[in-house]
């Protein structure tokens, strides 16, 4: 009741100002999936995350899923991208088709030799900025260990202002178990890089609490 009254009051006050408000209220999510080496075994978890995203995103929001492989700065690595239409029934149909496409991809995925996370992030930034969404999020489903093929240059600052980067399911490698400082150093390095580029950094390892992914 209170919410309705507040809503009514706000509508009456802000309706004349509403036309001038150009803020976008849509949300865009770009998910990067690491397909290198043994990490492909974790892809069923990524599927659960995508399902969660499909259930959470609203009509008008955008979702793209891309793979991280040897050279991720490429449109070819985008597995599926979509902007859900305004009608809820149409959006639901699109979500079903999206899920189908992701199931097919996960069933037939082949591991890559290298892990170009920076390239994937750059591709994500490009896509997210094009959507013009109000809230932009990059989800990186990876162990965050970048391995670049010879000749690939990625040691430069990246511009990700206004974008939240969430590292998901950052698994500990054998060397991390031996020396945890490497794991923490790797995450710290990424945090510095993201924040230097104007973005926000967050790590979510507990996949039981998927609601934390898109908060803030």
């Amino acid at each position: 009741m209170k919410r309705f009254a507040l809503f009514l009051l706000l509508v009456l006050i802000l309706l004349p100002l509403g036309c001038a408000n150009t803020t976008s209220h849509s949300q865009a999510v770009y998910m990067l999936m690491d397909t290198s080496g043994t990490y492909t075994a974790e892809l069923n978890k990524a599927q659960a995350i995508i399902n969660y995203l499909l259930g959470t995103l609203q009509p008008g929001d955008s979702l793209a899923v891309a793979r991280i492989d040897t050279g991720s700065f490429s449109e070819k690595d985008i597995i599926q991208k979509i902007t859900f239409e305004g009608r809820p029934s149409g959006a639901n149909e699109q979500k079903r088709a999206f899920r189908q496409a992701m199931d097919t991809f996960v069933a037939n995925v082949k591991g890559s030799s290298y892990t170009d996370i920076t390239g994937g992030v750059l591709q994500a930034v490009e896509y997210l900025n094009e959507t013009g969404a109000g809230r932009k999020t990059i989800l990186i489903f990876s162990d965050m260990e970048e391995e670049l093929k010879e000749g690939y240059v990625r040691d430069f600052p990246i511009q990700i202002s206004g974008i939240t980067v969430v590292a998901l399911n950052v698994t500990k490698l054998r060397k991390d178990i031996m020396d945890p400082r490497k794991y923490m150093g790797r995450l710290e390095e990424w945090k510095k890089r993201v924040e230097a580029g104007g973005g926000k950094w967050r790590v979510v390892n507990d996949l039981e609490r998927l609601d934390r992914i898109l908060e803030g």
Binding site: L14, S26, R87
Partner: peptide, 14 residues
């Protein structure tokens, strides 16, 4: 939302 679209906003309101 099925008629006017669920993603459009007038000011801060759907």
């Amino acid at each position: 939302s099925e008629m006017v679209g669920g993603g459009s906003y007038i000011g801060p309101f759907k």
